[in-house]
Amino acid sequence: MNSETGKTALITGASSGIGQELAKLFAQDGYNLVLVGRSDEKLDRLGEVFKSNYGTDQVTVITKDLSQEDAAQDVYNQVKAKGITVNVLVNDAGVGLYGLFATDTDWEREKSMIHLNVLSLTQMTKLFLYDMLARNEGKILNLASLLSITPSPLMAVYAGTKAYVYNFTQSLVNELKDTNVSITALLPNATDTDFFNKANAENTKITDELQDPVMVAKAGYDALMAGKPKVVPGGLKNKSYEVMAYVAPQEALAALMRDKMSQKPEPEEKEPTISLAWGIGFGIAVIAGIALTIGYKNASPYDKVRYKYKAKSAGDALSNTLSSVFDKVAHSVVDAYQTTKGKAEKFAHKEEEMLEEATA
Rank of each mutant, 00 (worst) to 15 (best):
F101R: 00
A27N: 04
L154T: 01
D194R: 11
G289L: 07
A360F: 07
V305R: 09
A9C: 07
L121W: 03
L355Q: 11
Y54V: 10
Q263P: 03
L355I: 09
T12E: 09
E108F: 05
A252D: 10
S324A: 15
I11F: 10
L25P: 13
A81V: 00
G37H: 14
L176M: 00
L89S: 06
T122Q: 12
I274C: 04
S332Q: 12
L116V: 02
T204K: 08
D74K: 13
P267C: 07
Y307S: 10
S323V: 14
M225W: 04
M225G: 06
E352V: 09
G234S: 00
T60I: 08
L276D: 13
V75P: 10
Q68M: 13
A288W: 00
Q58A: 02
K304I: 12
Q250L: 10
A72P: 01
S171D: 01
G283Y: 04
V325A: 13
F128Q: 02
A72F: 05
G279N: 10
G17P: 12
Q73N: 09
T56M: 03
V36S: 09
E110W: 11
S3P: 00
D40V: 09
F195Y: 15
T207Y: 11
L119Q: 11
E352A: 14
T184Y: 01
A71L: 04
G47V: 03
T8R: 08
A252E: 08
S112P: 08
V49R: 07
L89D: 03
L43E: 01
Y31H: 09
L187R: 12
V36Q: 05
D70M: 08
N91I: 08
A344C: 04
N180C: 01
V75R: 08
D70N: 14
Y76D: 06
K343V: 15
I274T: 13
T122W: 13
S171Q: 02
L147V: 15
N203L: 05
V173S: 05
L256V: 13
D316H: 14
D57M: 11
V61F: 02
M244H: 03
T191A: 01
K126A: 03
K239T: 05
N238K: 15
L46T: 07
E242H: 15
V36H: 10
I294Y: 13
Y309H: 13
Y246V: 04
Q68H: 11
W278N: 08
S52Y: 07
L355R: 10
N136W: 09
K304Q: 14
Y130I: 12
L100I: 14
L143D: 05
S145W: 03
S152A: 15
R258C: 11
Y309W: 11
V79P: 04
E69I: 08
D92S: 14
A285T: 05
F282S: 12
V86Y: 01
T207L: 05
H115E: 09
Y158V: 10
V79Y: 01
F50H: 04
S15E: 09
T60Y: 00
